[in-house]
């Protein structure tokens, strides 16, 4: 549905303010959730979302229309997230995240119901390093094709496939082979 919106609206015909409101209304929730998968903190998600909107506001003319609007917006948002992850502020919180990750992985070992197993997979995905996490998020949460992921991240399709393969190995290490058999991700 979102893809169709792009064909209906010419973002350059709007005022900057209306374009920002349009983007917020139609892509805001999706982008905020994407940002959360990177930073894993609601307050930080709000901050980065604001920075994302300001960046879009000032750079609307850089969107040429050749890539899809969604691809461009995702790319801007992801770059903002990566800027944050490299920042000293984030590094201070890495230790806390690491502790939280350990707890999440520990809980996977226990007996779980179907729904909880899915939650455990998602939690494990969110504990992967960014380079693997972002690909799983785009593939299984944003439901993008390999080609779309390669466009958003500026990676070749083969690299995306390779990272899925390596990410799967890492997930197996976290979840255990037997556990993943039931939830094969490819």
């Amino acid at each position: 549905m979102l893809e169709n919106l792009e064909h209906d609206i010419d973002i350059h015909r709007m005022s900057r303010e209306n374009a920002v409101l349009y983007i917020t209304e139609n892509y805001g929730e999706q982008i905020k959730r994407l940002i959360f998968t990177y930073v894993k903190n609601y307050a930080t998600t709000d901050d980065i979302f604001q920075e994302f909107l300001i960046k879009v506001y000032h750079n609307l003319e850089l969107y040429s229309g050749k890539a899809s609007l969604k691809t461009w917006l995702f790319r801007v948002a992801i770059n903002k997230c990566k800027d944050y992850l490299r920042s000293p502020i984030h590094r201070l919180t890495v230790f806390q995240d690491w502790m939280a990750d350990r707890e999440a992985v520990k809980s996977i070992k226990s007996e779980m119901m179907e729904k909880e197993k899915q939650q455990a997979i998602v939690q494990s995905i969110l504990t992967l390093s960014v380079k693997y996490r972002e690909i799983f998020v785009l593939r299984f949460y944003q439901e993008m094709s390999i080609k779309q992921i390669s466009n958003v991240l500026g990676l070749s399709e083969s690299t995306v496939k390779m990272r899925i393969m390596r990410g799967k190995k890492k997930l197996r290490e976290k979840l255990g082979g037997e556990y993943l058999e039931e939830y094969e991700i490819d």
Partner: peptide, 29 residues
Amino acid sequence: MKSTSLKHAFDECIGTKTLLKHADSCRFL
């Protein structure tokens, strides 16, 4: 794997309530 089932799991993990309401506190918006 059915990606839809993971999509819901992602949503539940992140929060089923809309995050965009927080945008009300976005000064720029």
